[in-house]
């Protein structure tokens, strides 16, 4: 882990020194040892502020539409973040030549919420490191080993692509895909209509899910439009339903399943789930994967004459 971090810093420094990029977006030390924070490094000597540890959760691709519009930027990216970049490039939100990707292999990042539910006392944590498949949590009192299954984010447990799909420099070795675990969401398999009603009833409309999402790149979101008013601003269940359902629809063929929306939700709505299910359909039916650099056209910007015909489905 420490070597990878050193290499990231080295590559960032090189890219900044050569003038290839004006800024490198990466993770820096967080305000507490179990968090990291996005940093924007614009001087070679600051490259040492970059870190790589199990808390590097943020999908930094969300910043690209803002930062890589007029010039080339470097970005430190996990395989899932790279899938987001692939989508942004395919959808012409970012030019490939405007991003310098420092790609990483990644075995997953941690869910601090899960750690808290365990016996770890957050206040005492001094560092997080991987130790093989286990998470080594160092605290003031000593070190505790937490099995990956208890520490990893759900999305990471089922991640297929753990090595960069595209990159300009690749740091670290390829990481084997995870075994095909399933995400079990309690209650989802029962009455879905009721399940989602309960979930959306919690929504406070803070839009953290939308804002943190690299695929939600619209300049003006449909729900911020005044005319037509597709969803009202109020946090009622039906308006939240309209927001989340539409957002899921907008994410078909775009969402790469990084799960950031779910991570940041302050009321625990598994917002990524709807898009994930739709993308599974898209994969099976149209052989389309949002993170696939070979896919030239957006899912809904293309068709085949022999596409599945929904008219005969509903018979």
């Amino acid at each position: 882990m420490a070597e990878i971090q050193d290499k990231i810093r080295e590559e960032a420094k090189k890219a900044l020194e050569s003038g290839e990029v004006g800024v490198v977006i990466g993770w820096g030390a967080g305000s507490v040892p179990f968090k990291t924070t996005p940093v924007f490094i614009d001087k070679p000597q600051d490259a040492d502020k970059l870190v790589w540890n199990p808390a590097c959760t943020n999908n930094l691709a969300v910043y690209l539409t803002r930062w890589a519009r007029d010039g080339k930027v470097g970005i430190v990216a996990k395989p899932c973040d790279i899938r987001s970049i692939v989508t942004l490039i395919r959808e012409k939100q970012v030019k490939r030549e405007n991003v310098f990707i420092i790609g990483l292999g990644c075995g997953g990042v941690v869910d601090t919420g899960l750690m808290e539910a365990g016996d770890v006392r957050m206040r005492e944590i001094t560092s997080l490191q991987w130790d093989g498949d286990d998470l080594m949590v160092t605290t003031e009192a000593g070190a505790v080993k937490v099995p990956a299954a208890q520490a990893l984010r759900e999305q990471c447990k089922v991640c297929h692509d753990r090595s960069p799909a595209i990159s300009d420099v690749s740091v670290g070795d390829a990481v084997a895909p995870s075994e095909d675990l399933k995400i079990e969401i309690p209650g989802l398999s029962e009455d879905r209509q009721k399940y989602w009603q309960e979930q959306f009833a919690k929504c406070i409309r803070c839009y953290a899910c939308r804002q943190v999402c690299p695929a939600c790149y619209c300049e003006t979101c449909f729900c911020d439009r005044i005319e037509p008013k597709w969803t009202a601003k109020k946090a009622t269940t039906d308006e939240a339903w309209m927001f989340h359902a539409t957002r899921a629809m907008h994410l078909v063929g775009r969402c790469i399943g990084c799960g950031e929306c779910e991570r940041v939700c302050p009321v625990g709505i598994p917002a990524v789930e709807l898009a994930r299910e739709l993308n599974a359909v898209a994969k099976e039916r149209y052989d389309f994967e949002p993170g696939d650099p070979e896919a030239e056209k957006p899912l809904l910007g293309a068709y085949k004459e022999n596409d599945v015909d929904p008219a005969h489905h509903s018979e």
Binding site: D191, R192, Q193, K194, Y195, W196, W241, A245, A248, M249, V252, E273, L274, E277, L278, V281, A282, R285, Y286, L299, L300, A302, Y303, D307, V308, D309, P310, H313, S314
Partner: peptide, 16 residues
């Protein structure tokens, strides 16, 4: 056709 097919799937996911 694609869009509507996926809308059907979304409705299914939402339990409608």
């Amino acid at each position: 056709r694609r869009r509507i097919a996926l809308t059907q799937d979304l409705l299914k996911s939402l339990g409608i």
